[in-house]
Design a protein around this nucleic acid. Structure first.
Lengths: 206, 206
DNA sequence: TAGGATAGTGACAGATTCTGTCATAAGTCA
DNA sequence: TGACTTATGACAGAATCTGTCACTATCCTA
């Protein structure tokens, strides 16, 4: 057993696993291309699998639903943001840490402005996808609440932590949408920063 | 023309319209009963229409999708809240107005605690429905932003207004979920109030 | 009140998503 | 190499959703 884990040094995972990853990626990429080209609903699963040459049944083994495929296209961004937030020094205030984490996850490779715009456009024009994406963000909220709780030494299920996490998610989504609605500013970050600044003031002052 | 609108005094809308409303309500009620009894996915459209004795095709004329049916079950609450908020005196601060509007819409007839709990349970155990519900709240957010903008004399598409509206939606949803997670407090209002109080303080202080 | 316009309805066919199942092939590990 | 696990393809089938058409009930106007 202990030797087994040592034998597979170079190929951290076996040939099968690599093949699996590749198929998954191929499906996602082929789907993205088709979605951006002719829209989400107009693209059928049959078309996607034809592009990768696998059976329709196989598709649903990789992605439980067609929507999950779209989530997979964008979820990396959320994860990277959370990772960045986790790694910010504890001395920083939440405000600073969140802003910095935003900048970091923005600098990461995945953020190709063109792709992000296409992705946001896809969400915008497909209510079902927007819903699914919100749900995904909603689920990640609990994770974010944990990270925040760890920083402030409070309880993760504290209503305030849930609200802070929700507000951050809300801010990012709202700011990104506002950014996508305009063409002047090519970089999304300023929009997010402005949103985060709002969170430094009471949203409903007495 | 002018006389026509006078002739239909008592039946504000004709027989056909009343029949239509009744069918719609019957579908919603039959569906709610089945959903609460055996779950959303386990309930087929065929079963719902059988209970009301209409054709499946008719169902989709009333509700574009099965999910829309569930939205119809709960959307009154959002509308009533918005109405209440619209009618609060302008002198009140947003904080006071929102709190009062919450109390008012809570007092309305629709809020049967048992039904609300069933509804929230339905959302909780069916991710697709939760997603759809979030999307609905998201769409209502723009309306709320308009109401807020009218009070503060600002632009409805202002990022800050969108965030305030989003935060209020977020607060209500989060608080309701927290309330549904416990059994001690039978009334949901205190949870919402506590959430709204959080909005009186900065969520991300410098 | 009659008759045409409008709108709800049922029935059918079909597309699409998604699930269950099983045999086959490929890959893994001892 | 040989047993074991896992991915895959193929098929059948359920459920959601859409297009269409003819029929009927309701409504409006003359």
């Amino acid at each position: 057993m202990s030797t087994a884990s040592l034998t597979m040094e170079f190929p951290k995972v076996g040939l099968a696993a690599r093949k699996k990853d590749r198929t998954r990626r191929q499906l996602a990429e082929a789907a993205a291309e088709l979605f951006y080209e002719k829209g989400y609903t107009a693209t059928t699963v049959d078309e996607i699998v034809a592009a990768v040459d696998v059976s329709p049944r196989t598709f649903f083994r990789y992605f439980p639903t067609k929507e999950d495929l779209v989530v997979a296209l964008g979820e990396t961004s959320l994860d990277q943001f959370l990772d960045a937030l986790r790694n910010r020094p504890f001395e920083e205030s939440l405000q600073v840490a969140v802003t910095a984490a935003t900048a970091e996850s923005w600098a990461a490779e995945w953020v190709d402005t063109t792709k992000v715009r296409s992705f946001l456009a896809l969400l915008r024009e497909t209510p079902a996808l927007r819903a699914r994406w919100l749900e995904e963000a909603y689920r990640k909220r609990d994770l974010m609440a944990e990270v925040i709780a760890a920083r402030t030494g409070t309880c993760p299920s504290d209503l305030r932590n849930l609200m802070i996490a929700g507000a951050i998610t809300l801010t990012i989504n709202t700011a990104l949408q506002a950014w996508a609605d305009q063409d002047a500013e090519p970089n999304a970050a300023p929009f997010v920063y402005r949103g985060l600044e709002e969170l430094a003031t009471p949203l409903l002052p007495d």
